[in-house]
Design a protein around this nucleic acid. Sequence first.
DNA 1: CGCTCACTCT
DNA 2: CATGAGAGTGAGCGT
Length: 878
Amino acid sequence: MTKPKLLLLDGNSLSYRAFFALPLLTNSQGIHTNAAYGFTMMLQNILEEHQPEQILVAWDKGKVTFRHETFKEYKGGRQKTPNELREQFPIIRDILTAHGIAQYELEAYEADDIIGTLANRYNDSHEVIIISGDKDLTQLVTDKTTVFITRKGITDMEKYTPEHVMEKYGITPPQIIDMKGLMGDSSDNIPGVPGVGEKTALKLLKQYETVEGVYEHLDNITAKKLNENLTTYRDQAFMSKQLATIEVNAPIDVPADMMNYAGPDLEKLREQYEMLESKRLLDQLKGDAPSEMQVEISYVTFDREEGIVWPEKASLHIELDGDNYLTDPVLVMTIAMAEKECSEGVYTFDERQIAEYESLKVWLEDETIIKYASDTKAIQSVLHRYGITLRGVQYDLLLASYIADASNAQKEIAQLAEDLALPYEVRRDEDVYGKGAKRQVPEFDVYTYHAATKAKAVWDSVPIVEEQLKESEQYELFHDLELPLASILSEMETEGIAVDETVLQTLGKDLSERLAMLESDIYTLAGETFNINSPKQLGVILFEKIGLTPIKKTKTGYSTAADVLEKLEHEHEIIALILLYRQLGKLNSTYVEGLQKEIHTDGKIHTRFQQALTTTGRLSSINPNLQNIPIRLEEGRKIREAFVPSHEGWKLFAADYSQIELRVLAHISEDEKLIDAFQRGADIHTETAMNVFHVSREEVDSNMRRAAKAVNFGIIYGISDYGLSQNLNISRPEAKKFIDTYLHTFEGVKRYMDKSIEIARKRGYAETLMNRRRYLPDLNSSSFNIRSFAERTAMNTPIQGSAADIIKRAMIDMNARLKEEGLQAKMLLQVHDELIFEAPEEEIAILEKIVPEVMEQTIQLRVPLKVDSASGASWYEV
DNA sequence: CGCTCACTCT
DNA sequence: CATGAGAGTGAGCGT
């Protein structure tokens, strides 16, 4: 006759596993439910699999246990149980009760001891099965007692029999205690013997069997340091062994029949499941099929490099503690691959392993190994820190999604995975880490699982997204433009640009003095002190106290925007001072002070280019933004003196496209007059002035040229007569006349305006020269404002976006050319129509030739592209 | 902490 | 009817 089965569960440990295996779910009352839900799922699996006659769940009781008498630091330094978990313990207990499952706890004992004692007591009469998340329990394994330890997630468990323990560690289950005695256990704060890890402990135990045996043969241990440590920490070793020993004779009063598994009370269970608001559990209760497939991702960690089988194709992800990949620390790297390469699907490597595993470096640097990732620029930059050059990248989820639809800008993998309907959840970073002040890194298993799901999602997305891009004829844009550009941008960001901090400090001193003087002058004129930087307070002073005419309102009060104040300049002398104060204040706070904060220890500023953000395909620059360094006004332009070459004898070199957007407009509109003007090499603003004002070249004065320039810009952006009138400070009919005359003269442009809107409405998107798309559903909006905005976008996006395409291609060509020519010159920055380099002085002459050549020849339009260049000792001079 | 406003650039 | 495309940062302020 077979013996009855007794199941012993470690309540605390399994609750922990459930809690950390699942995202932090809450029900509609705001009560956290993830641990309760996960525990329930575990329980169902366990009951299903083992069909026990008897079952008991043991709980820890009391912060202080009998072990603390031996060692008062036992379990010291442990993180407090999170409140989100603590509040779920009563729920879990109620669910167990509803299941008809016995529970037991005993003052000053841990769940381990209860389990150990009962296992010991019923070892002969029952088939004992222990389930926990704590490997310590494996010491209880016998021929008749089997221990299951959770591995990953909530269903995957490792079965420990005496054979398995021997196979895995080469020792018997009771020797697990001796192993702990020697190596200690950091999670329980058991010290062990310093310098002895798992390997040494196992070696010693295979030879001398027990801790006692080791010390009896201390003289035979020749390794000097090891012998020394064993001798010094003899007492600590024996104490550690004692601490690690599970009590198997605890004073436990559990009658055998109390543990009989009676089966659940369905009504009570339903109440509990309703509280959890789990449709899946409720459906199950009704006997229905589960409502949704849920897949757990599993992963493998390694404790040594030898024997790792490296896949031929894989996706990779690096999880960081923070959002700046140039500076923030690495948490873990995950690599997902085909199931035929590894049944678990995902490898994980911690920071040390990335730095040390030579085979990993070789694999990452092997161009023939195909890699997929999301935000490869970030990954390449991070790996660069470890001296690793990432090669073989063929896919980037972030970039691909952005190309497919620019409204996917900077989306997290979590969101992209959801959009692609992948059959498992990728959590949002905010849910894993919290945000703002509450942000904190969870435990290893949590972020590693999180990172594993990301790598898996990238892997699973490849066929779907690649197909999508090919379908929309954007694969080339993605694979041949954006992907190689990502790598170049990574190099530029990593290189950084050198900054002379003393220039900024001098400017700062000067600005502070001028600001102080302006401040007191403004207070004198206002007759009181107030915060000039507060638009609200300033509004009161200008429009109520002084009584100036409010021209424009914002939703919060009077507008004090510069264009408003400029119109009031003649009304009061305070206006000019305020405008200057705000300009200089901006220089000081954002540029002088802000930039100094961004200087790294290498004396350089390392901006990051956002490649998957703008709706038109332009890049943007953050931390800091180096695409808006002042130039228009002399005071601000001086900031550029701080940007210098990084080596003695080097210079900065800058090359910018002249009128690239108007040239693109000429190309796509096929306007004859515009094309002709560019082909003749004419000054386009003067040319426009001649046409709009009906005058000869000689008659165009600076005012006319300025107006024509504003019209040209307005045309690109889809300006209205009102807008132009505001801009040029002229009457609305005058502005209207300018625009009408312009469109009459450049009739191809007029045709383009109409056609671009029509085509975009028909297709649903506007498109650039290199097939970049911007979807414009608002073209059909019934709101005039929203529709008008979309119409201007339909006109502007092909212009701005094509210009962005062109300079991106030029960057790729330029990078290749620098390599070909074997130059030391480095590309450092891109500012929309401009590229900034640094180079040894002797290379400047070469750059003057090849940079304009490459930029001009990167694409053939109906008009020539023109590039101007300059070099100098600072950015100010170029 | 998030929004608004102001300033900076192409 | 409201009124020029695309961006980022910092100060003030209300919650």
